[in-house]
Every structure is written in structure tokens, then in C-alpha cells.
Computed example of a mutant assay.
Amino acid sequence: MSSAFDDVLSANAVYAQSFRLSGLEPVAARGLGLVTCMDSRIEPLTMLGLRPGDAKILRNAGARVTDDTLRTLVLAVYLLGVERVLIMPHTKCKMASVSGDDEVHDLIRDQYGVDTRSLEFHTDNDQLGALRHDLERVRHHPLLPDGLPVAGALYDVDTGKLEIVDE
């Protein structure tokens, strides 16, 4: 019987034959917590000179600091060795190219007949403003340590370059 996942299961079988990460510690070896987008054009380890185990990578649509992102950062800081946080959205992000959540809800409803209004997508076409807002949410979260280094950077999907926006 064929499965929609045969390709990934086959690739995993090949990967497992030469698996070398057994025994890797669960902490962020380089103390980095990275919040970035789920966009498949972003290769966080390679682009930042990291290896498996170096960082805790949190990905979501638009690289937004949601309540769940904050929950995960609290765990990462206290239990998983995160000592600094980089929030990294990217250019040409779909979540920053719409006028707001209403536009996305309407698009999904019109094209697929699904009402998504029970969800908040956190879209914002002022990408740098949204980034600064998210930086402040992390910097001032009452459960995160005072003085936790937090920076924001914009990744350019056309050049591969990272530009610090707020440090």
C-alpha cells in the first residue's frame, strides 16, 4: 500500500543508516534560542554556522513571538541551556505581505471554503514594527531573566545575508 509519506520514510531509512547524532546532549551547546519562520528557504543551522545541538530553533509562520513561543523560550532558558535569543523573520514573507489576518481568513474561505476565524495568524505588513514588538515581548516577559541578550535580525532570502535590526 502506498502512502503520502513514502518519500520521507525512504529518505529517513537512508539517513538512519549513517546516523551520527546519538548521544547528543539536549541542551543548546552554543546557548542560542532562535525564533524564525517555517519558510523552507531558511536553513538555520547552515546560515548561522551552527551544528545539530548548538541551538533551540522555534519556527512558526512569520517568526512571531506568540504565547506558545514565550512558553517554549521559558523552558529553553531554564531547562535547555538557552542564554541568548535571536528573532529572525525574513524578506518576502507571506505573513508580512498581507494587510492583516482578515485578508488571510478571506483568502482561505474563498479558495477552500474553510472558516479560520477562530485562529489568530499574527500577520503584520509592518514587518520591522512587528519584530520590534516581539523583541519587547521577550525582553520584558516576567518569567525570563533580566538581562537576557535578545536581538532581532532580518534574513534576506535572495542574498542569504542577515542584517541585525535591533540589538
Rank of each mutant, 00 (worst) to 15 (best):
D115H: 05
D134C: 07
C93M: 01
D115P: 00
V85L: 09
H90L: 01
D102C: 00
H140L: 13
N125Q: 12
L119W: 12
H90F: 11
E136R: 14
T91S: 07
H105G: 01
Y112C: 04
L144R: 01
V114L: 15
R139E: 14
R137M: 12
R132K: 15
H141S: 07
D106C: 02
Y112D: 02
Q111H: 06
G100A: 08
L119K: 14
R137D: 05
D126I: 03
L131H: 09
R109W: 14
D106W: 03
H140K: 15
K92V: 01
H141I: 11
R139A: 04
E103V: 00
H140D: 15
E136D: 14
Y112M: 06
D126K: 06
L135I: 14
G113C: 08
A130Y: 08
M88H: 08
Q127V: 01
E136C: 10
H141Y: 10
P89G: 11
G113Y: 02
D110L: 11
E136Q: 15
Q127L: 13
V98C: 08
V114H: 13
R137I: 14
P89D: 10
D115R: 01
K94I: 00
K94E: 08
K94Y: 08
L119P: 00
T123Y: 08
D134K: 12
P89W: 05
R109T: 03
K94G: 14
H133V: 07
T123W: 08
H140M: 15
D102T: 02
L128A: 06
D106Q: 12
T116W: 14
L143C: 03
P142M: 02
E120P: 00
Y112P: 00
A96F: 13
N125Y: 15
T91N: 00
D106E: 09
S99D: 14
V85K: 00
G100I: 04
T116E: 12
S118L: 05
I87K: 04
G129V: 04
L86P: 03
E120M: 05
S99K: 15
K92G: 00
V98G: 03
D106M: 03
K92I: 03
D110E: 12
L144N: 01
L86V: 13
V114E: 13
L144T: 07
K94M: 06
V138A: 06
R137H: 09
L144W: 07
H122S: 04
H140C: 15
G100R: 05
L107M: 13
V114M: 10
K92N: 09
A130M: 09
L131A: 03
N125K: 13
